[in-house]
Computed example of a mutant assay.
Amino acid sequence: MTEVLLSAGVVEYEDTGGDGPVVVLLHGVAMDGSLWRHVVGELRSGFRCVVPTLPLGGHRRPMRPDADLSVLGVARIVAEFLDALELQDVTLVMSDWGGAQALVADGRDRRIGKLVITSCEAFDNFPPGLPGGNLYAAAKVPGGLMAAFALLKLTPMRRLPVTWGWMTKRPVPQEVMDAWFRPLWSSREIRRDLRTYVLGVPPKAELLRWAEALRTFDRPALVVWAAEDKVMPPEHGRRLAGLLPQGRLVEVADSYTLIPEDQPVVLAAHIRAFLEGDGGA
């Protein structure tokens, strides 16, 4: 892990290096950059993959107590991260977390040359579906996040629809998920950061305004959605592709929300084909 000091705190990241086009891959809540381990394995030949761990609960370094960790605040952290590393013309790839809409609406997308949106929060689906609603309810109660994630030490609890059961069709390896949750198990400050994020969702009207702002993103964009997604409605993928002036949609079979876990080779092939200029595999 490498790290960079930003205004909100220290952000850790992995960087495969090299002279190839830069691909920045972003994860969602209560996980870290290892979500992309298989996709990076497929892409590192020919591309420089940069994978930050965002302050969404799977991070190991707490943010400053006064850091803005709302959805928009985390989007600004992403923009500052790109600035700090002086990355230009990047392909920004995201899964689960819907921050692309906030980045564009806030005018923080100048370093993004291409955009890849895989199954994620969109429109007013924040926090998303049953898992998101469960997380929001836990965050509203003192000690709720500690209790909720303590239950996830029990492997069977991880496959419930209200936790992670609808996030992947196949269980995430236990050791990977343990690493995602360990900061939340051990650190009050990390739980504070996650709670700030979960409770920092703006009103529905603002979320819908962000989505509409995607009409101004005039660069190539690929939307990759899980055809069987139970948390992020497939219709949202179609709508996002329709909003993006150069948007293209592909749907991936035999996958739930976390396509990087369920279908990493298929996803990597779509990304590689998109980056090499034929719009998608």
Rank of each mutant, 00 (worst) to 15 (best):
L6K: 01
E121N: 14
R159S: 14
P202C: 13
Y197E: 03
L82H: 01
D178M: 04
E121W: 02
A75N: 08
Y136T: 00
G129H: 06
G28E: 10
F217H: 05
E3M: 05
L207I: 11
F126N: 07
L92F: 11
L25P: 00
E175V: 11
E235A: 13
Q101T: 12
K204G: 01
G33T: 00
E251V: 10
L130N: 00
P233I: 02
R192Y: 07
L115R: 05
L240K: 04
M31E: 15
P62H: 07
R48L: 08
M157L: 14
W210M: 14
G132Y: 00
L222S: 13
V266T: 15
A281N: 07
L243D: 12
D109T: 03
M177Y: 10
V39M: 10
R44A: 09
D89K: 07
G46A: 05
L43H: 02
D106Y: 08
P62G: 06
R64Q: 09
W97R: 04
G107T: 03
V39C: 08
S45Q: 13
R158A: 07
V250H: 10
P55N: 05
K153M: 15
T16M: 04
K140C: 12
L72K: 03
D15K: 01
T118H: 10
W225I: 03
F149V: 15
G242H: 10
R188D: 12
P127Y: 06
L258S: 04
P264M: 11
L154V: 14
A179C: 02
V162T: 00
G41Y: 09
S186R: 14
V71F: 13
P156F: 12
A211R: 10
S70K: 04
G129R: 01
C49L: 10
P55K: 00
G144M: 08
L82T: 01
L56E: 08
A269R: 15
D96E: 15
V141W: 02
G247C: 10
L85F: 07
V176F: 00
L222P: 09
E206I: 11
M1K: 01
M167H: 06
G113N: 07
A139H: 06
R60C: 00
A138C: 03
D193C: 09
G17A: 13
K204E: 15
V250D: 07
L72W: 01
E276A: 10
T163H: 09
L184A: 03
Y136V: 00
F274S: 11
D106I: 02
A8Y: 01
T118R: 10
E3S: 14
R182M: 11
L103I: 13
G129Y: 04
Q263S: 10
E12S: 12
D68A: 02
K169A: 11
G143T: 08
G143S: 08
A79I: 10
K114N: 13
P131W: 08
G46L: 06
S45T: 14
P203N: 11
Q88V: 09
D109W: 12
L43S: 03
P202S: 12
L130A: 07
V93A: 07
E80K: 02
L249I: 08
W185H: 12
P142T: 04
L152I: 09
M232A: 12
A150V: 04
L160V: 01
F126E: 06
V10D: 02
V162M: 13
